[in-house]
């Protein structure tokens, strides 16, 4: 008996991760994802743990390589869309991505911005990034798209003298600040410690 849920988390990756972990505690594990869909089947309560990983900056090949690597590590990996995109026609431009990933097309990287990684619970914490340097790097990848949005909204707000766009700029400032503070924190730690 599978259970279907429809949820919108947008950029709140931690909220999504927490929700999935709560579902697992209640005895449901993920079997399929769709645009807003999460389909679960029953499992033992707390049998699995979840991490939500942002990979939109990766090119198609690198995203696939990473996906396969995680599966080889024994994890179950689901692609998920982030439901947050700015688009021109059918092509999405991601100037913050690495080479090969800057133009997101439907077939390649669009709607595959996240990986939901599932691990059988062995009682240990489940973290994908463990060294300070790597965490700093990961949070930069999370910050950059928001930083670009912030700049764009700001420019358009000034040009159009629009309050709404100004408000949008302020809203995108929040994740920039949150991720930036994580970056600074990890950078500070990395000065004396590796992990």
């Amino acid at each position: 008996m599978s259970k279907k849920y429809y949820r919108f988390f947008g950029g709140l990756l931690t909220a999504q991760e927490n929700w999935l972990n709560k579902m697992s505690e209640k005895g449901y594990r993920l079997i399929r994802t769709g645009k807003l869909l999460y389909e679960f089947e029953e499992c033992k309560p707390g049998q699995v743990k979840y991490c939500v990983e942002f990979i939109a900056q990766k090119s198609k090949n690198n995203a696939k390589d990473y996906h396969d690597f995680l599966e080889e590590m024994g994890y179950s990996v689901f692609y998920k869309n982030i439901n947050l995109n700015y688009s021109v026609g059918r092509v999405r431009w991601r100037p913050w991505a690495e080479k090969g990933g800057r133009i997101a097309t439907n077939a390649a990287t669009f709607n595959r911005e996240l990986l939901i990684v599932e691990k059988e619970n062995d009682g240990k914490p489940f973290e994908l990034h463990t060294s300070y340097e790597d965490k700093e790097n990961y949070y930069s990848n999370l910050r950059d798209p928001w930083f670009l949005l912030l700049l764009m909204f700001e420019v358009f707000a000034v040009v159009n003298r629009s309050v709404i766009l100004g408000a949008a700029a302020l809203i995108s400032l929040i994740p920039v600040i949150v991720y930036q503070s994580q970056i600074m924190k990890n950078r500070r730690e990395a000065r004396t410690k590796e992990w």
Binding site: E53, Y66, F69, L70, M73, Y75, V117, K124, E127, L128, H129, T130, S131, D134, Y138
Partner: peptide, 8 residues
């Protein structure tokens, strides 16, 4: 204990 992302 190494995270898979860091190892990758």
């Amino acid at each position: 204990s190494l995270g898979a992302g860091t190892l990758y």
